Amino acid sequence: MFSVTVADTGQITLPQAIRDYLNLDGGSKIDFIIDEEGQVRIIPLDVSVETLSGILYRPDRVKVTLEEMDVSISEWVSDWQ
């Protein structure tokens, strides 16, 4: 476990081990998320495309055409309005 001190300005310095683990460099962006259990999670936003490759792959996913996507979006929008 790592402990840090919050400055009067609200800033903290992330320990080097945490920055290394999350692959953060100077200028990296992160999100703080409070999950359903009340835990705060740090999510790095500077993620390479290679890291994301295949993240949405589902073997049971049905392929659709662009036209089918347009129809689906149009239907959703009309229901939403």
Rank of each mutant, 00 (worst) to 15 (best):
F2K: 05
S3G: 15
V4I: 12
V4R: 08
A7F: 11
D8Q: 15
T9I: 15
G10P: 13
Q11P: 09
I12C: 14
T13V: 15
T13G: 13
T13M: 14
L14S: 07
L14W: 05
P15D: 05
P15R: 13
Q16G: 14
A17Y: 05
D20A: 12
D20P: 11
Y21G: 01
L22A: 02
L24T: 05
L24F: 12
L24C: 11
G27H: 08
G27L: 02
K29D: 06
K29G: 04
K29R: 04
I30G: 09
I30K: 09
I30Y: 12
D31Q: 10
F32G: 11
I33E: 05
I34Y: 10
I34R: 12
E36R: 11
E36T: 08
E37S: 11
G38C: 10
V40Q: 05
V40F: 02
I42G: 03
I43Y: 06
I43N: 01
I43S: 02
I43T: 01
L45E: 08
V47R: 02
V47H: 00
S48L: 03
V49S: 10
V49N: 09
V49W: 12
E50L: 03
E50W: 04
T51D: 01
L52W: 01
L52N: 06
L52V: 13
L52C: 05
S53D: 02
G54H: 01
I55G: 00
I55Q: 03
I55M: 01
L56S: 02
L56Y: 08
Y57W: 02
R61W: 04
V62T: 05
V62P: 08
K63V: 06
K63T: 08
V64T: 07
T65C: 10
T65G: 07
L66F: 06
E68V: 07
E68T: 02
E68Q: 06
M69K: 00
M69G: 11
D70Y: 05
D70A: 12
V71I: 08
V71Y: 03
I73D: 01
E75H: 06
V77A: 14
V77L: 15
S78W: 00
Q81H: 14
Q81C: 08
